[in-house]
Write a protein that binds this DNA or RNA. Structure first.
Length: 445
RNA sequence: GUGGCUAUAGCUCAGUUGGUUAGAGCAUCGGCUUGUGGUGCCGAGGGUCGCGGGUUCGAAUCCCGUUAGCCACCCCA
């Protein structure tokens, strides 16, 4: 019986695994650089947790089943609900702002395609307990740095920045109530992939005959790429009254956000783009998505404010902002940019063994070197010198430790530096002193 | 869930109008006397031609179905 991997699931042979771990280590390094703490949560959760957050429709996209205790459970499709529960449960005892991150596998029952599998890793980074734009700025700066850590630069990616608050104010100024506004945002989210005629058709029941002109105004807003234009546009919508005041206040938060992003060195990656609103309705303020610079492909990462979610899932009132980045799209991008390093792992030393007595010496010395934290390997069966050297080269070893009958007799080992070709004998007694020097500076020819 | 393309060795691919025992390169393993390097030379293993059915004297090749992969749509937390 031959078994195959389930559709959308991956196996990680050593090279792929090394590459995956490289991605993880960069993610972890950047999160730690911003002093975020790593947490983890169960892979299997009550189905209800996801229904509560996303609605009944979500079930069709989950790996869910009934466990032996009759509980309806699901493999986690995302981290946010679990995280909201963790934070909610301890909210009163946690020092704020709460800055946490996680790297974990997630599962979605969807048709696999480019940049999307059924099991994938996500980097989740969140800040809780800080309502001001400082938290948004910190998070976006972290996102930018996380992508830069892989060698991606301004020419490679951008972060499209938008704001649901500003949209709601704009739509309120148009005279729409909150339901109508939500419906319009749902359409804005799909505008990029929708025919103009179809969009007008969809807007008709909401804004009436005026739909075409209304859409034109929306398109004008989406085309805005700089803050001054955005600011002027927003101010022109309402000159006085409640909405005007809110617009002014919100624009100040925008200024603060942009100022901080510039100060953090992330400014050049930011592209104002109100076309981003992010589908599901729980986002409440600034929202953003990272894309390949040309805008092609799926989003590399996405996030934003979700000030109401912790409470919705049973916790206290808790402002929150976070983003998630997937490993699949990221790895695809790194491949296409030629930034996928060769992650083959090579040993520092390979022992070349000339006989039974030599093997004992080589193994004893290897034990010492290994305890110092360096990598040593030797052939597990006796082989000719020629073959052993060839092998050492294939494996990319930096040094050969040569143990032949001559060396054993003299109580030495011969060291060969493959880069320089230089060879030198060292007394075996001096092994522990010699090794760190060799690692540091090699052997001169 | 819908549609398009694809499927031959571990990988990349040949394989004639349907015709004998399905090939190559790379990779793997072994050898080229147990003292020196990614080359070189010799050799070996490895295939139910995705799977199932059909047409035919005969199918990797033609037809139908199915599964998987890729791509697009739907969706994208």
């Amino acid at each position: 019986m031959q078994f195959e991997t389930l559709p959308g699931f991956r196996e990680f042979y050593p090279e792929a695994c090394a590459r995956r771990n490289h991605i993880f280590s960069q993610w972890r390094k950047v999160a730690r650089a911003f002093n975020f703490s790593e947490y983890d949560a169960p892979v299997l959760e009550p189905l209800e947790l996801y229904i509560e957050k996303s609605g009944e429709e979500i079930v069709g996209q989950l790996f869910n089943f009934e466990d032996r205790g009759g509980r309806a459970v699901a493999m986690r499709p995302e981290m946010t609900p679990s995280l909201a529960r963790l934070v909610g449960a301890k909210a009163n005892g946690l020092k704020r702002p709460i800055k946490w991150f996680n790297i974990g596998e997630h599962y979605r029952y969807e048709r696999p395609q480019k940049g999307r599998l059924r099991a994938f890793y996500q980097y989740n980074v969140d800040i809780f307990g800080e309502a001001g734009p400082g938290a948004d700025a910190e998070l976006i700066a972290l996102l930018v740095q996380a992508l830069q850590a892989f060698g991606l630069a301004v020419a490679d990616f951008k972060v499209r920045l938008s704001d649901r608050d500003l949209w709601l104010l704009m739509l309120a100024a148009e005279g729409l109530d909150s339901d109508a506004s939500a419906a319009v945002l749902g359409i804005v989210d799909k505008l990029e992939r929708m025919d103009r005629e179809k969009a007008v058709e969809k807007l008709c029941p909401i804004v009436g005959d005026e739909a075409d002109a209304f859409l034109s105004r929306i398109e004008a807003v989406i085309a805005i790429r700089d803050f001054d234009t955005l600011s002027a546009h927003m101010r022109s919508l309402a000159s006085e009254g409640d909405i005007a005041d809110q617009i002014v206040a919100r624009l100040q938060e925008w200024q603060e956000l942009l100022k901080r992003l510039n100060a953090a060195g992330a400014g050049e990656f930011i592209q104002i783009d109100l076309g981003i609103v992010r589908g599901l309705a729980y986002y409440t303020g600034f929202v953003f998505e990272a894309f390949e610079a040309s805008g092609a492909g799926r989003a590399l990462a996405g996030g934003g404010r979700y000030d109401a979610l912790v409470k919705k899932l049973g916790g206290p009132e808790m402002p929150a902002v976070g983003f998630a980045m997937g490993d699949v799209t990221l790895a695809d991008l790194l491949d296409s940019k030629g930034l996928t390093a060769n992650y083959v792992q090579s040993p520092d030393f390979i022992a070349i063994i000339g006989g039974a007595e030599a093997r004992d010496a080589a193994m004893a010395d290897s034990a010492v070197i290994r305890s110092m934290g360096y990598t040593v390997e030797y052939p597990l069966k006796d082989q000719s010198f020629g073959k052993q050297f060839k092998e050492a080269n294939n494996k990319g070893a930096r040094f050969a430790l040569i143990y032949g009958s001559d060396e054993i007799e003299k109580g030495v080992f011969k060291l060969r530096d493959f880069a320089s070709g230089a060879e030198k004998e060292f007394p075996r007694d001096a092994l522990a002193e010699v090794i760190p020097e060799l690692i540091a500076s090699g052997l001169e020819s």
